[in-house]
């Protein structure tokens, strides 16, 4: 948490210049900015439960490779997913920037906590709806862009807006397990 608040202040400083311009855009949303494989993403802060260091993960065997295991979050068992792997990249070596962001996501009919391991977290920004564009559908949406539904142009930077619910869907999960079973049988 402390890391995030540090980032917070640095983001806050850079925001200072445009504060006046944004003052009238009252309906801005707060987004958490993070990066995965050299690309910057943004996810609604309301979905973020917590940002913590990515350690203390107990692996669970016989699960899809993008599932890293479980952590103990103050007595609760929370599953952890590797965003890099989920997006089809090679898993990165854990660095001092690596973070675990606990998100609230819909899975089937349930709302669950899901830990997402990311390369780095940069802070929180205010994005107004006018800065967000729906992303044109691409031909092959299999991997890293599967969960990205729109793009935000914020301070001359492109941010891929992550729809947290699409990070892990029931269908995708069921398919993964099915693959796994067949692989084990085969």
């Amino acid at each position: 948490m402390s890391t995030v608040s540090q980032h917070d202040s640095s983001v806050g400083a850079s925001l200072g210049a445009t504060a006046a311009a944004q003052a009238e855009a009252a309906d801005t949303e707060k987004y958490l900015v993070f990066s995965v494989a050299q690309e910057k993403y943004a996810v609604e802060v309301v979905r973020v439960e917590e940002v913590i260091e990515a350690y203390g993960i107990t692996p669970v065997p016989r699960t899809p490779s993008y599932l890293l295991g479980i952590i103990n979050l103050r007595g609760r068992i929370v599953p952890v997913l590797c965003v890099r792997r989920r997006f089809g990249f090679e898993a990165a070596v854990t660095s001092s920037d690596t973070r675990l962001v606990v998100l609230q996501v819909h899975l089937g009919e349930e709302m669950v906590s899901l830990g997402a391991v990311l390369d780095a977290v940069h802070g929180v920004v205010d994005i107004s709806p006018s800065e967000i564009e729906k992303r044109p559908t691409l031909g092959n949406d299999e991997n890293q862009h599967i969960a990205v539904t729109s793009i935000a142009k914020h301070e001359n930077e492109l941010l891929l807006v992550l729809n947290a619910d699409l990070l892990l869907t029931k269908e995708y999960l069921d398919n993964s397990y099915e693959h796994l079973r067949q692989r084990v049988v085969g």
Binding site: T58, V60, P61, R62, T63, L67, I70, I77, V78, P79, L81, L107, G108, E110, V112, L114, L168, L173, D174, Y177
Partner: peptide
Amino acid sequence: SLGKVYEQVEGISGA
């Protein structure tokens, strides 16, 4: 409980 994400894991029943 391991929760929904690990519902289908074989050989593990909880944490």
